[in-house]
Design a protein around this nucleic acid. Structure first.
Lengths: 143, 143
DNA sequence: TTGGATGCAAATACTTTGCACACGG
DNA sequence: CCGTGTGCAAAGTATTTGCATCCAA
């Protein structure tokens, strides 16, 4: 989370033009803590700048995420993926090709649930997603 | 992961008709370990049963997931969600209303990466997603 | 001035729905 | 036979793209 000054700096460092739209989108997103969708951000930005287009919001969020100014909570959102297994286990995702490998390790199933979770939510479980680059993608990149 | 006999049993227990399509879809999914999309399952099932429709695959996967015969890897896949924070932290998701709350706990950032992950993938990090039911949804349900 | 950013509309991708017919129990 | 499941086509939703115009640097 950056201040507006830091944000402007960060854009310049990355060669991104600092536009009014980008500042609004960044401000709206960083002031919210519920991880909104593009549509929700669009609706909120529109209140201050009605001329903005939804396509700009999409493009801007994508650009920010590529430049590591924000993150996408849902990396695999573009299509649903299914798992024949219902027993607790974890996943390792290749951030390039989106391949998923199962991870089974008893120690990972014994995580202590933090107090902040238990506080109000009725906890059902948890999933750990490891992220990395698979050998095939690593080989392709280094060429 | 169930044998075909166990699967048929499990369907009966849940009051689900055992159809040829359902058996094929379950078999294809449980034999793969890459967590395919509906389209990929459709393409593979089609090789054995060309008359199947993509809509049936979608409906069937949804039904299976509701009855806990399979799981959806991507619960939030229906729309992308963004986070203004790029520093490592974790999430608590309400499985009903899809609300996301940030979880910060230093102990969660010190997980030991399992050997099976390191083996080949170049690991970039991990995210933990806790899942539960938020107070609002819990109140609504109990009525 | 100039390349990157925006806005609009059209296109695409994924998923869901309505309905007539088929089939499992 | 009854009610659930299926297939098809159409509709719905989320997202991306092409392109003319605009604007930050």
């Amino acid at each position: 989370m950056l201040t507006m000054e830091q944000f402007i700096q960060a854009c310049r460092q990355r060669g991104l033009n600092v536009t009014y739209q980008r500042m609004l989108i960044y401000r709206v997103l960083s002031q919210r803590h519920d991880h909104p969708s593009a549509e929700e951000i669009y609706q909120q930005v529109r209140q201050e700048y009605p001329a903005i287009s939804l396509a700009t919001v999409y493009k801007t969020l994508e650009t920010f995420a590529e430049h590591n100014l924000i993150t996408k909570v849902t990396q695999l959102h573009d299509q649903a993926r299914f798992d024949g297994e219902t027993e607790p286990h974890h996943h390792l995702l290749c951030v390039h090709c989106k391949r998923i490998v199962d991870i089974r390790d008893e120690r990972l199933n014994q995580l202590e649930i933090p107090e902040s979770c238990r506080q109000e939510f009725q906890i059902l479980g948890y999933r750990i997603q490891f992220e990395g680059i698979c050998p095939e993608c690593a080989a392709r990149q280094s060429c």
